[in-house]
């Protein structure tokens, strides 16, 4: 390892970085704000996703059987439901249990003692693994022999699924927009540094430095802008996460955050990676454009 070369290279990076201290601060600040917004947005999306997920998890398909369904038909139907891989659980509620439940739920509101016979049908309550399968499973169950009718929160399922799809699309658009803004700011900063060092670049080119060699210190500068900006943002988000979110959840106990989306260390590592990548890509483009002219 030639330490002299390493020292020269680090010196170049440091010189670049400190030459436009004000502009670097602006770039780092912009990246930080962008990543905080991005992180906050992903948090909110995760929370809303969690709420939607909970609602969808609670949705069950009720399959009402024909009044004259025989025990054999019921057993066959039960076996067929259990065989479907999309279905997570099947609960059989005989009409007697259904009436008991109804009595309990309507106690003091409706007097069910006037009934001379049980008018309720037997019911299968079916849960599915994925909420998006609810409509298809419901349709399949409806066609099975012995099933008179199928009921599920059709409208709410459709709306929630639709909302989820729209959120994903809007989310991607917003993220791309944030990243573009950060990229443009870093790119402008690097362009200023390139401009400030144009004499040095001209001499480098004159004595035969390769484009890769000229480019590298600027790429490192962009990387530092992105990394420092996202580090700052991660710090802010971590403080907010520790201080604010616990209170939010205490105030709104029914909120559930989807842990897969904001598993904190991984989530923060991803934000750092995004910040650094934006810095590298933006500086690569702006130096490349200068060297080509």
């Amino acid at each position: 390892m030639d330490w002299g070369r390493v020292r020269f290279f680090l010196g170049e990076v440091f010189r670049n970085f400190t030459r436009n201290a004000g502009m670097q601060a602006t770039a780092i600040g912009t990246v930080a704000v962008t990543i905080v917004l991005l992180g906050g947005f992903l948090y909110v999306r995760a929370v809303l996703g969690g709420v939607g997920h909970d609602l969808l998890q609670q949705i069950r398909i009720s399959a009402y059987l024909q009044q004259n369904a025989s025990n054999a038909t019921i057993a066959q139907l039960h076996a067929a439901l259990l065989k479907d891989p999309r279905i997570s659980s099947v609960q059989f509620v005989p009409k007697s249990v259904g009436l008991k439940e109804l009595r309990k739920e309507t106690k003091g509101v409706i007097d069910l003692s006037i009934l001379t016979k049980n008018p309720l049908p037997d019911v299968f309550r079916v849960s599915v693994h994925s909420a998006s399968d609810v409509p298809a499973v419901a349709a399949a169950v409806r066609r099975m022999p012995g099933v008179a009718n199928v009921v599920y929160g059709k409208t709410i399922v459709r709306r929630l699924l639709h909302l989820g799809a729209v959120m994903r699309r809007v989310g991607i658009a917003v993220i791309v927009l944030f990243l573009l803004v950060a990229g443009i700011i870093i790119s402008s900063t690097i362009r200023l540094t390139v401009f400030a060092r144009r004499r040095e670049i001209a001499i480098m080119q004159l004595v035969g430095a390769t484009s890769a060699f000229i480019r590298l210190p600027f790429i490192c500068e962009g990387f530092l802008d992105g990394l420092l900006g996202s580090l700052l943002a991660v710090g802010i988000l971590a403080v907010a996460h520790a201080a604010l979110w616990s209170r939010v959840f205490r105030a709104l106990p029914w909120l559930h955050i989807d842990p897969r989306l904001v598993n904190t260390p991984l989530f923060f590592a991803q934000l750092l990676l995004v910040g650094a990548a934006i810095g590298v890509i933006a500086s690569w483009i702006s130096v490349g454009r200068y060297l080509r002219t």
Partner: peptide
């Protein structure tokens, strides 16, 4: 380069072409 000494200016041409220290 006005912010580099004579030595650094001359060495610069070797440094940027990847010469050994």
């Amino acid at each position: 380069l006005t912010d580099k000494t004579v030595w650094e200016n001359v060495a610069f041409a070797m440094q940027v072409t990847g010469a050994h220290t």
